[in-house]
């Protein structure tokens, strides 16, 4: 299963490191990354492959949200189809 991860928040040291470490711990593979500073906000998107993940989608989501609290950013994960179905035919 592929999913899109979005990280939005105030820029700080260690956001990418913290997020990737957490994903590695969860056995989630990163397929693509894009990161920018938008209107002063750190904005990162990742395409993830969850096929090797041992946890359920809900647990992965929770672990990432907790990590977001720790890093002071908002981390969301949603299945890829919600975006592809809306923006492509």
């Amino acid at each position: 299963m592929k999913a899109i991860l979005t990280v939005i928040g105030k820029d700080n040291v260690g956001i990418i490191a913290g997020v990737s470490r957490q994903l590695a711990d969860l056995q989630v593979n990163i397929l693509d990354v894009s990161q920018t500073i938008m209107n002063g906000y750190f904005t990162m998107m990742m395409i993830l492959d969850l096929s090797a993940a041992k946890e359920t989608f809900g647990d992965v989501k929770k672990a990432l949200a907790d990590k977001g609290d720790e890093l002071n950013v908002q981390i969301k994960i949603q299945r890829e189809e919600i975006f592809t179905s809306m923006h492509s035919l």
Binding site: T6, T36, T43, M45, K76, F83, M86, H87
Partner: peptide, 11 residues
């Protein structure tokens, strides 16, 4: 998938 499309959906 483009960044602005992802952000549009989230918004």
């Amino acid at each position: 998938m483009e960044t602005n499309q992802i952000l549009e959906t989230i918004r």
